[in-house]
Nucleic acid binder design. Structure first.
Lengths: 249, 249
DNA sequence: CAGTGGTCTAGACCACTGG
DNA sequence: CAGTGGTCTAGACCACTGG
């Protein structure tokens, strides 16, 4: 296995440079499921970094479930079915993969000053603008979710004027802005809709909705969007794929 | 804030001892949401450990979402409603990592013939028995979920007679049967409780519940259990960690 | 036994936040 | 400016796995 030397002068931390190299090796198939990856000591010696740095790189891949460790044996590439799976894709891709025609109706699409909560999540400066997007999402024309999206306008200038009706936001980000969403971190809960949401979804105030609060990242862990999706509880369930159990305490 | 000195002779790692102390401080209300917790340096000096050890303790709480860090400002106790984190571990460990005392009340614990749905999921023979377990799950004594578990009795003979009141099923599986749950595959949706569930959870029939249907595997992909967990929607949110996006389109 | 990950020490410099 | 978390070094001993 070949690894490039790391750029110690770069602004990108060494452990992230190494983590990305390992991700590429796995995605390109150089490292296959079940393969043992180099030990922390091997990595640190061959790349001239400390063991803690190589360990930090490995830990960041562990979180994503791409690899797993076994004490005394080594660190291994996880079975591909363990990660990935179609659990979280874009709404458009998700709906399409279920066999429905995806669509959306734009309710709001405007630049607003960043509020404190988004600012922290997106690591933005205090005076930056975010594009605030509210869309009613449809499957075969039926409303099944409301999506509130916040994107730093810095990374997608002009998106406030783009026509997003019936288009995938992610495909616009990829094709026009060369931003490739790769990861999402989400929190899920059951709740009731607000009166506006109930109205848009055509459901009663006491019917259940599934609320997913997420943050989306690129492969290089730059944050792309903060998004809340409110699903009509009756029309959808989310498949989570294989989750590694966190057995710590 | 008082912290006990750590036991360097203990088999429990120092960082875990410290992490548990911090969890208790948060649980007991000594540390409240929004409070700043001592800095890594303060902790390491007052407890006579290295900064890396105090940092490791803080990182283990970070994963559970109990706290959050802000560079240059400090580390703070998270809003208890907003964190949620660690959605997929055993219930016991999940609740404990949130700073509550886990518990359970066994409602049903009996061997039954396998039904068709379970038989397929657990890949069992047609005449095998499953242990059917229904438990009301508690956090600090408050009912927050109902859990329906099916395990092939082949892999856990005698478990029908084990006392599971207030014990972690996973810890029994590990310690007595040497079964190590490692992965879970789940489907999540929002719904309403059945009358029995509403009664057990102490909520109304039109209040939302979060239903998680899961299958648990060992590292080697042997199926361990089929489990449905019905959470009181108001008392919990699930954190999904970092999900790789499906790159379909 | 050599090799692995798990834990730990005692330092260092950096970028960032607030006053 | 002093304080914070973010990254990093160069070591150490431990428990565990396999041959």
């Amino acid at each position: 296995m070949e690894l490039n030397t790391l750029d110690k002068g770069s602004h990108t931390p060494l452990y992230l440079q190494l983590a990305r190299q390992l991700i590429r090796q796995i995605q390109s198939g150089v490292l296959k499921p079940g393969d043992k990856i180099p030990s922390e000591r091997e990595l640190s010696e061959s790349l001239n970094v400390s063991r803690i740095t190589s360990r930090q790189a490995i830990e960041s891949l562990l979180k994503s479930g791409l690899i797993y460790r076994e004490q005394g044996r080594g660190t291994f590439v996880a079975e591909s079915k363990m990660h990935g799976i179609q659990g979280f894709s874009s709404f458009t891709e998700d709906i399409r993969s279920r066999g429905y025609q995806p669509g959306s109706k734009v309710i709001k699409q405007e630049l607003v000053p960043v509020d404190e909560k988004c600012r922290q999540k997106l690591k933005m400066g205090p005076d930056e603008l975010v594009l605030h997007l509210v869309r009613l999402r449809l499957a075969d024309g039926e409303p099944i979710a409301i999506q509130y999206t916040h994107l730093p306008s810095r990374i997608c200038p002009g998106l406030e004027n783009e026509d997003l009706e019936n288009r995938s936001l992610f495909s616009v980000l990829r094709d026009r802005y060369f931003i490739h969403p790769a990861w999402t971190e989400a929190e899920v809960r059951a709740s009731n809709p607000t009166p506006e949401e109930a109205d848009l979804l055509g459901i009663g105030l006491d019917e259940p909705v599934l609320v997913v609060d997420g943050v989306t990242f690129t492969e290089s862990f730059d944050m792309v969007e903060v998004v809340r999706t409110v699903y009509n509880g009756k029309s959808i369930s989310l498949y989570m794929g294989r989750q590694r159990l966190g057995l710590l305490v």
